[in-house]
Design a protein around this nucleic acid. Structure first.
Length: 486
RNA sequence: GCCCCGUUCGUCUAGUGGCCCAGGACGCUGGCCUCUCACGCCGGAAGCACGGGUUCGAAUCCCGUACGGGGUACCA
């Protein structure tokens, strides 16, 4: 049997980290088994779905590098893949169900149901089955009142049990699972119908989703069985419920939580492979003593049975650390390529990049590639090399600390030592400063080079000083040293 | 309230009855390296929720309790 899995977000709001994790696990599962990864858009809720959000979902998948075999823009044999374009299909299936004994028409309002539940002192919430066995006369009476019925699924007696791919055996007594609505009174199909119907129609074999949907499974399995019985599909899929990702306060990470937003990580300079690696760790481990790996390695090693069922807290610090490890796995050329958009956006280099800047960048990147944990950090480290001399400024707080009277004295000495250098090279600069400041004046290296660093780069934290001075060039370096002591 | 799921260092995890007086990672912390910051290296503190069983033997199996989470719509 060929594995077919799907990832089916609702385009409401911006994609969040739970989105990325669910997409990742489904994608990896499909790739591991050589199966098909279906991307479907669940936009049946017309009031909440937006085109902007839809575009965001596609953009998020592309940024993450999770490609889909069937879905929007690539098509496939079971399309269309946006539920808003599948309404005819749902109405067709709904008609089949309505013509069977698996469903019944229900005329009750929510208020009536609540009132009856309350009066009966029932512990169970939701529908009470009032309309299950209406006769023709009762139907006629409701219709005479002008009521439009909805279609409800008739839950079977007994229990629903399945082998959850992540949790093992899970079982619900159906007395606690009320008959549920499949459509609105106006005929609009609901998620309860549409999600399992699409899984059935698209021949999905494994449903991997968040634990928040665990309690909808005892409704979906009987519905799937009915669909098989009615010839709509061939088999009931297997289910696996992934642990939820928790945020602050140990609540499910919600769209309201700023840490939840995927694009925040992209904009902060996370690598998609770094974020994905971290997300994979929330519920899965590749080995006992290892937690940095590539997507390919994950595809190779992934087994849904190894996924941990308990919820995990999102830890930004560890996510950053893993991201840093991935950054250091990249070649300098690759880091340069990834950093470039951030440099352009910050206006550090032009767009397109000029020849001189490109050359300078190529020389400077080896100095910064290893010392950043996020792509945006390169911008701060590199800006001093590219800025127009007129716009160069020294960080005030850093200047206050290091360019005091004593610091300026050091800078004067540095200026003397370096001004007449016959060759302007890292080695020559280092030798001259070392001799003058450390050996001659007996200064500790950090005391000697700190003020010079601030004067030349504008900050206490910078790429290595002597290399920086060489790259900056003699003229600009000297003018900055003079400016610092003026 | 009711139903379901879960519970190993602060956090993420390894562990599927003896290899565990519990291993790794992030974080924290002492030190080394060092022109700053990172990186790298060496060391430290820190955990099997609790109570009963089962067993020669339990972090691992069973029951209960506590705690946490999810669900409970004509949302998805």
């Amino acid at each position: 049997m060929t594995v077919r899995v799907r990832f089916c977000p609702s385009p409401t709001g911006s994609p969040h980290v739970g989105f990325a994790r669910a997409a990742l696990y489904n994608w990896v599962f499909a790739r591991h088994h050589g199966g098909t990864f279906v991307f479907r858009i669940e936009d049946t809720d017309k009031a909440r779905s937006t085109e902007e959000s839809y575009q965001g979902m596609l953009g998020a998948m592309r940024w993450l590098g999770l490609d889909w075999d069937e879905g929007p823009e690539v098509g496939g044999p079971y399309g269309p893949y946006r539920q808003s374009e599948r309404e005819d299909l749902y109405r067709e299936v709904l008609a089949k169900l309505a013509g069977s004994s698996y469903t019944y028409d229900c005329f009750c309002t929510t208020e009536e149901v609540d009132a009856r539940r309350k009066a009966a002192g029932s512990k169970v919430q939701g529908y009470d089955g009032f309309c299950r066995d209406l006769d023709a006369e009762q139907r006629a009476a409701f219709e005479a009142e002008g009521r439009a019925p909805i279609v409800r699924f008739r839950m079977p007696d007994g229990s629903v049990t399945w082998q959850d791919l992540v949790r093992g055996e899970v079982s619900f007594e159906t007395e606690f699972v009320p008959d549920f609505a499949l459509c609105r009174a106006n005929g609009d199909p609901l998620y309860t119908l549409v999600n399992p119907v699409d899984d059935a129609l698209m021949r999905i074999t494994h449903v991997l989703r968040g634990e928040d949907l665990l309690s909808s499974t005892p409704r979906q399995i009987p519905l799937h069985r009915a669909l098989v019985e009615l010839g709509v599909s061939e088999a009931v899929p297997e289910f696996g419920h992934l642990p939820l990702i928790m945020g602050e306060g140990n609540k499910k990470l919600s769209k309201r939580d700023p840490q939840a937003h995927l694009f925040m990580y992209r904009d902060q300079g996370f690598l998609p492979e770094g974020l994905l690696n971290y997300l994979a760790l929330l519920g899965w481990a590749i080995a006992a003593d290892r937690d940095v790996f590539t997507l390919e390695e994950m595809v190779e090693a992934f087994d849904i049975a190894d996924v941990n069922p308990n919820p995990a807290r999102f830890d930004l610090k560890k996510a950053s650390a893993i991201n840093g490890d991935h950054l250091r796995m990249l070649s300098v050329e690759e880091v340069t390529h990834r950093v470039l958009p951030f440099l352009k956006q910050a206006g550090v280099v032009g767009d397109p990049v000029g020849d001189a800047d490109a050359q300078l960048l190529e020389q400077a990147m080896p100095l910064v590639a290893e010392r950043i944990g996020k792509l945006t950090e390169a911008v701060d480290l590199l800006a001093f090399l590219f800025v127009d001399e007129a716009d160069f400024s020294v960080d005030e707080a850093d200047a206050a600390k290091l360019l005091d009277e004593q610091g300026r004295e050091v800078v004067r000495a540095a200026l003397d030592a370096v001004e007449g250098l016959p060759t302007w090279s890292t080695a020559a600069i280092q030798e001259a400063l070392q001799a003058s400041l450390v050996e001659e004046r007996g200064l500790k290296p950090r005391v000697a080079f700190g003020p010079v660093r601030v004067a030349v780069t504008g900050r206490r934290i910078s790429p290595p000083l002597f290399e920086s001075m060489e790259l900056l060039g003699r003229d600009r370096t000297l003018s900055r040293l003079r400016a610092a002591v003026a």
